[in-house]
Amino acid sequence: MTPEEAWRALDQDLADYLARKGVAPSCRAGCFACCYGLVSLSRLEAKALLPHLTKAQKARLLEEGPRRLALLAQGKDQEDFPSRFFRSRTPCPLLEGGLCGVYAHRPLACRGLLTQGDPSLCAPEAKAPKGHFLPVPWRMARLRMEALWEEEQRRFGFLVLGELAGLLYLLLTGLPEDRPGVEAKLQALGVLGGRWGFQVV
């Protein structure tokens, strides 16, 4: 399975599920509170996203990537790091004028985060109540992610998982192809392992 096939399959699965259950997500264009969160994806999915990036998007990633990696190095072992990062209101570098600049090619993790509640409760300061985000779409996205992880292991012999901006930055600037090289690079940056750091499996 390719990332593109996984994206299309999840979109179809989500549409079928929502129609069958009569659920209408309240997520709309211009609603982008979730774009402040930490998004993780695999190297395979990140590589599929790269050809769709504009020159301006790449420039923002080259600027934001080192900052994200430095934050991750400081917080990867801290339990509340994702929530603290979310509350810092640091937008995804692919967010443009309140819209996803790569919407058709956005990661599976983004596709599976849906709500039918008040979108204002998605904001970092709102502290969304339990059950605000729909659990089934997220589980469906997670299954597609796991399928891609297995595909990456088949293709490369190992899997690399990491934060979106940091991983795209590393791919743009040169991430080694071999496992020892990848691990050495991530270790040198201080982002390998821990609770929220990059994982090499």
Rank of each mutant, 00 (worst) to 15 (best):
P137H: 03
V201I: 06
T54I: 01
C110E: 05
C92M: 02
S26W: 07
E64H: 06
L167Q: 02
A59I: 07
R43V: 00
L72K: 10
A109P: 00
L94Y: 07
F85Y: 12
V191S: 06
Q78V: 08
W149C: 02
S83D: 08
R89I: 02
C34E: 03
A6Q: 14
R179F: 03
P124F: 10
Y17C: 06
V136R: 13
R106H: 06
G117D: 14
K55H: 11
L44E: 03
V136M: 10
L168P: 03
K21S: 04
D11Y: 08
L62F: 09
P176L: 10
P180L: 13
P180N: 12
F158G: 01
G37M: 07
H132C: 08
L170T: 07
S88F: 01
P119E: 15
R106Q: 09
C100I: 14
V201C: 05
E79T: 07
V191L: 07
K55I: 04
P176E: 08
C34Q: 02
C31D: 05
F156L: 09
P82T: 11
C92H: 01
V182T: 02
V191G: 05
L121P: 04
Q12Y: 05
E45A: 13
R144I: 00
A126Q: 05
A126I: 02
P3G: 11
G197A: 11
F86Y: 14
E146S: 07
A141H: 00
F85N: 01
Y103Q: 13
L95M: 11
V160M: 10
R155S: 13
A165E: 04
C92T: 02
E4C: 04
V39W: 03
L50F: 10
Q187E: 13
P119G: 10
L175G: 08
A126R: 11
P137D: 07
E45F: 03
Q57E: 15
E177V: 09
L167D: 01
G194L: 01
S120E: 15
G98A: 07
P51S: 12
K130L: 15
S88T: 01
G166I: 01
A19Q: 15
G157T: 12
Y36L: 13
T90H: 11
V136K: 10
M1F: 11
V136D: 09
A73S: 13
G22Q: 12
L72N: 05
H52T: 05
E150P: 03
H105L: 04
M145N: 03
A56N: 06
F85M: 03
R195K: 15
R154P: 01
D80L: 14
D16S: 07
L170D: 06
